[in-house]
Amino acid sequence: MAREIYAYRCRRCDTMHYPFRMVCSGCKQNDFFEFDTVPLPKNGKLLTFTKVYNLPAQYEVATLGLGIVELDNGMRMLGQIEIDDPKIGMPVKGSVEVVRKEPYDDYYGMVFRAA
């Protein structure tokens, strides 16, 4: 089964959040974890991007592509990008993969490629 990244929908006012926040930014009235989890869409368009050359200590690659994507439901997220010639506004498709490896942990996040 494909992995997902989840948004959080307030059960009182339907405001969607990603990432999680304790208090809903829409109504500010929710009780503890009064949210439904909803998988984030994987398709969207690239809003901005960069290619990073000096990476933090844990990365053993020469460069890393990063971008902010506006997803099909209008929400946004940051992810890694694997796109040869990225352009602002281009359609992209995400998949949930390992984005950071540490000695005892793999961290999963969204990796976007050209759609």
Partner: peptide, 29 residues
Amino acid sequence: LEATDFVATLTHPIAEYIYGVTLPAHAAM
């Protein structure tokens, strides 16, 4: 590299830091 990582720890731990985001990366985007 360690200094860059140390400053990057101010980013959002789940939605930013795990992707390898650094302050130069944010500034670049």
